[in-house]
């Protein structure tokens, strides 16, 4: 029974994440019902600093991209959706908690340019310690 449960629920990771991911905690979390509408952007310090440097970088799909490539990337993601769902795309921003607001706001600016205005700051539930 358990075996079948895990066999069914397992999603094998199709991407290797090249940046550090310590997702921040928050309490007011909401869920998106349709998972196909979500595209993920990962932000954090590269795990391999000798190759990519130590400044926070942005990862989309399998590669590290620059902020200026976001518009192109968003359009590719939108093309993958059906015509009616194109405007409903959600971007899930998986940012490391040590990232500063500078890069985040640059990304937000580019997302506005790309007209993908629905943004979700991915976070994990807060553990109450009081």
């Amino acid at each position: 029974m358990l075996l079948f449960f895990f066999m069914v629920t397992t999603v094998l990771r199709e991407q290797t994440i090249l940046v550090e991911q310590k997702i921040p905690q928050a309490s007011q979390l909401q869920k998106i019902q349709k998972k196909t509408l979500i595209s993920y952007l990962y932000i954090g310090k590269p795990k391999n600093p000798s190759l990519y440097g130590s400044e926070p970088r942005l990862q989309a799909n399998d590669v590290l991209i620059n902020t200026s490539d976001i518009v192109l990337w968003v359009n590719q993601q939108k093309d993958a959706l059906s015509e009616a769902e194109r405007d409903q795309i959600w971007i899930s921003l998986k940012a490391d908690r040590d990232v500063k607001m500078g890069p985040i706001s640059d990304i937000q600016f580019e997302l506005r340019e790309a007209d993908a205005r629905k943004l979700m700051y991915a976070s994990v539930g807060k553990v109450e310690n009081n």
Binding site: T9, T10, L12, Q30, S92, R112, R117, K118, L119, V124
Partner: peptide
Amino acid sequence: FLVTTTIASDKGIMNILPP
């Protein structure tokens, strides 16, 4: 399968950016 399972968590704080 126990080890490889990552229960996908698609939760977060929603925000709508200005046009």
